[in-house]
Design a protein around this nucleic acid. Structure first.
Length: 847
DNA sequence: AGGCTGGAACCATAC
DNA sequence: GAGTATGGTTCCAGC
């Protein structure tokens, strides 16, 4: 199940010397959201991203993206290949499959996502007037650029209170896709629909029964005026999604809505004005699906809850088609011409039981057609590296960020663990063509392009996350309760690199999952550790800490072939931690790693999400357990051994202002993936990290910086049965590799980190932000450390009230034939609940 | 004064 | 069907 979030980025962009001043640019990034409901854990969770290409396999075969092609990118173990756009619209056809399209032509609108959209503050005219050169900036390697929103005033203009409606809608529209599709500069052909997410959602059918098409409409969301950020988000979102500059949402009443009920789920004409971009065949199909008999029965196919809401707010329920054909841009005409009366009829029918919202006094500025090169839809899967280019998230966002509702004010931008902001870095060989940073939603692509010499970092300091009500989502999807616990998202950033041959290489990088829910429950809790034979996990005690906690293990294949309850040290509960002894696997003579899931429950109905746990064979000294992430897993688990290093899904973060040394020091800062670095081999095999001989320093908040990990040697690792054969799409964590699976040659949104981390001591992070010293280190992953260490430090740390630590009683696993990569002397930690009192770390012991 | 945060309160749903 | 637990959403107050 997925929920929908909209995330906007209001970024600062210090254009650099060339410009000589701050430039307003619009940056659009899509974010895919990983969400799962309580019932959708490792076994039945459907990843929001049903992409043929997994995130874990960032490097895909080179693809040529064209606007006219379907976004399905063949999966490949890839490498060096980015998604290349070509101005000609032919090549792609053969590459892409209309998987995102449902049988009836409706787009697959399954995947939740957040959308990050920063936008240029330049007035359209001004933007157009801007010369390309003005936007060319030369930056030295490792320079950091801050995306700024120039006209903050505009951004927060009260009159533009709720552009967010677009966002929400937008997001919902793209639900089907793994990534938000922000490019609607497509023709309306089904296969060209941006909705055709490469992701093939198993739940595609749901869309048919649901007004997903009206989803956006369902979420025009009368954003409260008190949420400037939301408004901005929405605005950006729409902008980003259509290349149309929509300074202000028409949805926004100059004055706060009188009824101001946040429950308003259906868009008004304003929405359409913006969503004309969406009024393509997909929408029509969806609407048709809702109104098969030509008469819309609001009582059917719409969740009661939503229905109720809608009725209550019927006045806002309107899908009236705006006469904004001229505003649609190139494709706009087609849309309307193709489905004018039909769409109108359907909408009217659909809203038959509702009162139309009076025409808004507002008038949308005419969106101008995007004149730039064809760019892949945001819901397309793209690699993170291509040739000399490599896009990476230099500083990962915090693992937890409370998303705000439309009825709320902004809850601030997503921050980095260290207290700074996420940083995205683009790396390229110095002699390579300039990098064209995709700054969508502009009428003049030139004005939104930045040409970089080699490396550039962008600090995303104004990206918030907007969460849509589940009811709205249900309305769109025609499902009920789909939003439950869909609280995790990722940020996905993209860059487009123009090449001399006229092609454009598009890359994208995804952040670590971000927990967006407010409540701090077990659902956020991440328990990751690996162990051999036996391990002890220290869990935090707190309001949500289960006193009668059960620790269960079950296989990830969807069947509880084996399940057992872990032994809980009741005495430990007295302290601030709970010690759980993980039982040995049923078959202790396994020859390959066996991945299982476990969850924690409080003896009632509350239980955590599934977390992965790996039982390693006796002769395989793998200790590290990979983070769980459905999003990651979507793509290539089992098939590609998706690299997964340094990635831990943290459910909570430590105090922003006080980065944990363990996290920061434990891993070398993300080295600026030098362009000079040899291309990562697509065929690189995942490797295991041997931590058996590594001792880890005490993991205390104040512990000294840990030494960088020694050089590493990697060796291929065989995939575990569960992973190789079970790319369980429903498993939130199925993508995780057993042990320290990573393909050194497969950098990517996630895997890339590994490469980074692997390169010890590379601390030349381009990110100059002192607040983000650790860079990638902010995304620690669990590691085991020697018992002695655990005793000496980890436990003591617990006693001291510091986050729990991962205790590992490693009885020195027998040496293996594989080459082992040493891990940094660091203790994996997991912080819960924003790293406050609930900070916790999990320690495992191998015995 | 406005925005950001944290948390309480309320409501709906699940058990 | 009622009661309770849990999660989702809204609202409020403090910083």
């Amino acid at each position: 199940m997925q929920d929908t979030f909209s995330l906007c980025v209001k970024a600062k962009f210090n254009s650099g010397a060339a410009a000589g001043q701050e430039r307003r640019h619009q940056l659009l990034a899509s974010t895919a959201a990983d969400m799962k409901s309580a019932d959708e854990d490792a076994y039945n969770y459907t990843p929001n991203v049903s992409l043929p290409v997994g995130m874990g396999n960032p490097c895909l075969s080179t693809q040529y993206h064209t606007l006219q092609s379907s976004p399905v990118i063949p999966v490949s173990s890839c490498h060096q290949t980015g998604y290349i756009a070509q101005n000609d619209n032919h090549a792609a056809s053969g590459y892409y499959l209309p998987q995102g399209l449902r049988r009836n032509g409706a787009p697959a609108l399954e995947s939740p996502r957040i959308e990050i959209t920063a936008y240029s503050q330049y007035p359209e005219d001004e933007v157009e007037a801007s010369s390309r050169e003005e936007h060319i900036i030369k930056r030295g390697v490792n320079s950091i650029v801050t995306l700024t929103l120039p006209n903050v005033d505009v951004y927060r203009d009260p009159s533009c209170l709720s552009p967010a409606s677009s966002i929400s809608s937008r997001s919902c529209n793209s639900e089907a896709s793994s990534y938000e599709s922000g490019f609607y500069n497509y023709d309306n052909s089904p296969q060209n629909s941006p909705w055709q997410s490469p992701s093939v959602s198993p739940r595609a059918s749901s869309l048919l029964s649901c007004p997903h098409a009206i989803g956006p409409a369902a979420s025009p969301h009368h954003s409260p005026s008190n949420s400037p950020q939301i408004g901005a988000m929405r605005k950006y979102s729409f902008s980003g999604s259509s290349y149309h500059q929509t300074p202000c949402s028409p949805n926004q009443s100059p004055t706060p809505s009188s009824h101001g009920s946040p429950r308003v789920s259906v868009t008004d004409e304003n929405w359409l004005a913006n969503t004309n971009q969406y009024t393509n065949s997909a929408i029509v199909a969806a609407i048709n699906a809702l109104t098969t008999d030509g008469v819309v029965d609001m009582g059917e196919g719409i969740p009661i809850k939503t229905r109720k809401t809608m009725l209550d707010l019927s006045s806002s329920m309107s899908l009236k088609v705006e006469p904004g054909g001229e505003e649609l841009g190139p494709e706009g005409d087609l849309r309307h011409e193709d489905y004018p009366s039909r769409l109108t009829l359907k909408k009217e029918n659909y809203c038959g039981g509702f009162l139309d919202v009076p025409q808004h006094p507002y008038s949308w500025p005419k969106p101008k057609p995007y004149l730039g090169p064809s760019l892949p839809a945001l819901d397309w899967q793209l690699p993170s590296c291509s040739g000399p280019y490599n896009l990476q998230i230099e500083v990962q966002p915090k693992s937890h960020h409370r998303a705000h509702y439309e009825t709320e004010g902004s809850r601030g931008a997503v921050k980095a663990l260290s207290g700074g902001h996420p940083v995205v870095q683009m790396l390229a060989l110095s002699n390579e063509p300039p990098v064209y940073i995709q700054t969508t939603s502009f009428t003049n692509e030139q004005s939104n392009a930045l040409f970089l010499s080699s490396c550039l970092s962008y600090r995303i300091d104004c990206a918030g996350i907007l969460k849509l009500r589940n009811s709205d989502i249900e309305l769109r999807k025609g499902e009920t309760d789909i939003g439950r616990k869909n609280t995790r998202v990722r940020l996905v950033f993209r860059v487009h690199i123009n090449q001399p041959n006229g092609r454009t290489v598009s890359l994208q990088a995804a952040s670590n999952p971000i927990e967006c829910c407010k409540s701090e429950t077990l659902t956020h809790t991440i328990y990751c550790c690996s162990a051999i034979k036996r391990a002890t996990i220290l869990l935090p005690t707190g309001t949500n800490s289960p006193f009668n906690m059960s620790f269960l293990l079950c296989q990830i294949d969807g069947h509880h072939l084996w399940e057992t309850e872990a032994k809980v040290d009741k005495d430990s509960v007295k302290s601030n931690t709970i010690v759980v002894e993980i039982p040995p696997y049923r078959n202790q003579r396994i020859s390959s790693p066996v991945q299982v899931n476990f969850y924690v429950c409080n003896g009632k109905r509350k239980r955590s999400q599934y977390q992965r746990f790996t039982y390693m064979p006796a002769n395989v000294p793998i200790i590290k357990t990979e983070p769980a992430d459905e999003f990651d897993s979507v793509g290539s688990v089992g098939r590609h051994s998706k690299p997964y290093y340094g990635q831990t899904r943290l459910t909570s973060i430590m105090p922003v202002a006080e980065p944990d040394p363990c996290l920061v020091g434990g891993y070398p800062p993300c080295p600026p993936h030098h362009a000079a670095m040899p291309p990562l081999s697509p065929s690189s095999s995942p490797t295991l990290h041997d931590l058996s001989n590594i001792t880890f320093n005490k993991c205390l908040p104040n512990s000294p910086t840990h030494a960088a990990p020694p050089g590493n040697v990697v060796a291929p690792i065989q995939e575990t049965p569960c992973c190789s054969n079970l790319p369980h799409p429903t498993s939130p964590d199925h993508n995780s590799s057993l042990g320290m699976l990573h393909s050194q040659g497969s950098p990517g949104p996630l895997g890339y980190h590994h490469s980074v981390y692997a390169n010890s001591s590379s601390s030349s992070s381009p990110v100059s932000d002192p607040s983000t010293p650790g860079g990638p280190a902010e995304t620690p992953f669990f590691q085991a450390y020697s018992p002695s260490q655990a005793e000496a430090s980890g436990i003591s740390a617990q006693a001291a009230g510091s986050p729990a630590s991962l205790l590992t009683e490693d009885t020195s696993p027998p040496s293996t034939a594989i080459t082992i990569k040493q891990e940094p002397q660091e203790l994996d930690q997991m912080y819960l609940d924003d790293g406050k009192s609930d900070q916790t770390c999990v320690s495992s012991e191998k015995g």
